[in-house]
Design a binder for these strands. Sequence first.
RNA 1: GCACCCGUAGUGAAAUGGAUAUCACACCAGUCUUCGAAACUGUUAUUCUAGGUUCGAAUCCUAGCGGGUGCACCA
Length: 599
Amino acid sequence: MNKAITEAILKSVEDVNLLDFLSGKNLLDRPGDLSHGDYSTNVAMILAPKLGVKPVELAKQISEKLQSAVSEGSLSGVKKVDVAGPGFINFYLTEVVGFELMKEILDKTNGGDNYGKSNLHAGKKMIYEYTDPNPFKQFHIGHLMSNAIGESLARLGEWSGGNVKRYCYQGDVGRHVAFTFYGFDLLKNEEGVEWPSDSMPLSDKVAFLGKIYAKGATHFKDHSEDESIVQEINKKIYDKSDSELNALYDLGKKWSMEHFEEIYKVLGTKFNEYFFESDSSVVGLGEVQKGLKNGIFEESEGAVIFKGENYGLNTRVFINKFGLPTYEAKEIGLALLKYNKDPYDISYTITANEQDNVLAVSYKAIEQIYPEIEKKNFLLSHGMLRLTTGKMSSRTGDVITGESMLHDMTEMALEKMKDREIEEEERKEIAEQIAVAAIKYTILRQTIGKDIIFDPQKSLSFEGDSGPYLQYSCVRAKSILEKAQKQGVSTIVENINLEDLNNSNSPKICQLDWAGGKLEKMLVRFPEVLLRAETEHAPHYVGQYLLDVASEFNSFYANTQIVVEGDVLTPYKVLLTKAVLTVLTNGLNVLGIKVPSRM
RNA sequence: GCACCCGUAGUGAAAUGGAUAUCACACCAGUCUUCGAAACUGUUAUUCUAGGUUCGAAUCCUAGCGGGUGCACCA
């Protein structure tokens, strides 16, 4: 459709020089305001200065030519063309085209569960690395943010035809692990605390890990003279030279991983592969040592560094003076491990933007060693979930764990559902889905790069611009469809005839002056919204759009009775409801949000 | 100090260089005997400052003011 309109626009311009100027430009827009038509073009405004005429005048001339093309029937599908505002030329599609587009949403092959899919990245291998919590440390709400964003970007990749793989990279070695065992030694000596047995409940074991880490980190703050002790533990963890420590380490790591897996299950993420710093550090160390010989890195004050200043970046340490690889070196190792695991076309790393500067140095180093891999790697950094009290710090205990947030939100959802007659088990499951929706939507409704200031007191919303609002709209649509089915309303698309409907005395469908007209026009834009969200890596376009659709549907619901016995329009209204449900469900799926059957 | 990011109603956000700057919360006034009120209808209020580019600027450029993050052995 838009190809035909673009051609018609070019045809009506005529002047060869102007056509040359227009070539390659995107001439067709989707007006934000639905009353401005289905498509619009700004050619007149671009060309007017070149011709020395007023934009509106030129727009009138071009629009007249286009209108006569419509009258002659050479621009089929367009009902009318007019000029508006400062010189926009707007195109309005016919009811026939509108009806065809509506049918597409419900079509069994292209529509339904598949409606919105594209083949933008068909056949491409796409990697998404996100969440990245560290074993032995807490899974906090920052990880929740990375997970919500990463999961939805991965799903956008899938919806655009990509062959997607989800990776999770975890810091199982390093200072935080050393602090954990340093803290354990302290508590063992001071209070006789013992290492829990593997048969204890997971939540207790995880709580224990949190306790000893906090002890180690806070104690070290006032006892920096223990630096050598911490360093020694750190080294033992790296080279696995202490069998007693190894046994405890393996248990602790296992508990952490099991705990994370529980959370992923609730959040709806299934990783294809897990990478660890204990592996990337070995590979990274080797690469940096090789690079040192090749002159990519240099020695300085006993450490191995990369001179970032040569590229407008900071200088960073890759191997510290104890001979251990740093985060920067591990990134090199990780890049290699990921690529060798399964060579890909595109790889995205999703992390908080506080790491932008450091990662830029690592990536610059990778570019020197493996330019062909670096070309395929992209960093998608997001803002931070911060508290009203400032930055979260696990050292001071000023963190909110992902688990506690999920728990609190679930409790709130249960409170709202207390009057519903639903079995205990299902009720719990639904409440959890609502909690996840509330959290994810809050994160995904805004540009991923911006911080979210989270006030634990005010908490997250269940109404208005929220995930549960979208879920509620779906549940409402479902219940209407149930009623229609009970009354035997036929919802077979083929049985609906546009002419019959528009010949009746009822308002004409697929036109804006009908109550559901806006809804119809919005629904058919869903695939374009997904395309835009994917190309710009911006899931918030989806959230924003779904809110508009849900809001319009709720208005429609409020002022139109959908199921009316003996009404000619009822089958179509029911189908429209079905289309709304399809779009909302698919859109929420992209955001990683489930739709409960009731709530 | 240097680098990067950001300043939009009271609050939190949105806006491929386009049309009357959109949405939610909050405030105030209404709507449940109807297909689910986690909803709907109505009301009030917004682009940090100064220049510039453009037919057209919240958006691009310059300067200033304000905030965030990062800057050598944590990740």
